[in-house]
Nucleic acid binder design. Structure first.
Length: 208
DNA sequence: ATGACGATTTACT
DNA sequence: GTAAATCGTCATA
């Protein structure tokens, strides 16, 4: 069952987005930079996007453009998009080619390469003053910390070195909190669907 | 060609 | 709590 190198298998990803979202909690997202440095974090918060019927999804009503094309890739690929003129967010594609469902990774608990994450996140506040809970506690914070941008859109997480996911501990159902998704008020009744999942009590979960 | 809009974050009042 | 930042993308014309 476990892949030799510890990565999640294609089979793991090819499930419905809700099942995949919950299964991704506890797994470890790994970003390998050009110089070989590894940046890694345990996934502690995710949201499921259900595709064609889901008004909050980029693939709502079958919308298919150059921007969201990779959301239609086979399960296990990355869908990275740019938004608000300054932020990137990363999704894990679910199911199979042509379906258009995915899981947005909203927060990580830093595990490896924390100093580099601090440097990537430093701005007005210097790297040494950043709290660890400010590094990956939001979908655009974690992409900044791990240096993830559109250059990684469409990569296959099953085979790529630059970005992949390794097996971590599974989070027991009793430790998973279910809630409404964030930032999708425009989505009508879909804004209230319980499609956000996070690890109960984890300090790295995005606030609200 | 143009305009409106974000699956957000940060800084400020 | 409120608002600014900031621009690629897409629907409309």
């Amino acid at each position: 069952m476990t892949h030799p190198n510890g990565r999640l298998t294609r089979r793991f990803y090819r499930r419905d987005p809700v099942t995949l979202a919950k299964a991704l909690l506890g797994q470890v997202m790994v970003r390998t930079l050009g110089d070989g440095l590894r940046l890694a974090g345990r996934i502690v918060e995710v949201e499921a996007y259900l595709g064609t019927p889901d008004q909050a999804a980029h693939t709502y009503n079958g919308r298919r453009t150059a921007r969201n094309e990779s959301m239609y890739a086979d399960g296990g690929h990355a869908y990275v998009y740019f938004t608000y003129g300054m932020h990137h967010c990363v999704n894990v594609v679910a199911q199979t080619r042509g379906v258009g469902t995915a899981v947005l990774v909203r927060a990580l608990e830093p595990v490896e390469g924390i100093d580099a994450m601090r440097r990537h996140r430093a701005g007005k506040i210097t790297a040494d003053r950043l709290k660890e809970t400010d590094l990956c506690s939001g979908p655009a914070k974690l992409t900044q910390a791990l240096a993830i941008d559109r250059a990684l859109d469409g990569v296959d997480l099953v085979t790529a070195d630059a970005l992949h996911i390794e097996r971590g501990g599974r989070v027991a159902p009793g430790h998973i909190v279910t809630a409404k998704r964030i930032g999708v008020a425009y989505a009508g009744r879909w804004a209230d669907e319980p499609l956000r999942f996070y690890v109960k009590g984890n300090p790295h979960v995005s606030r609200r």
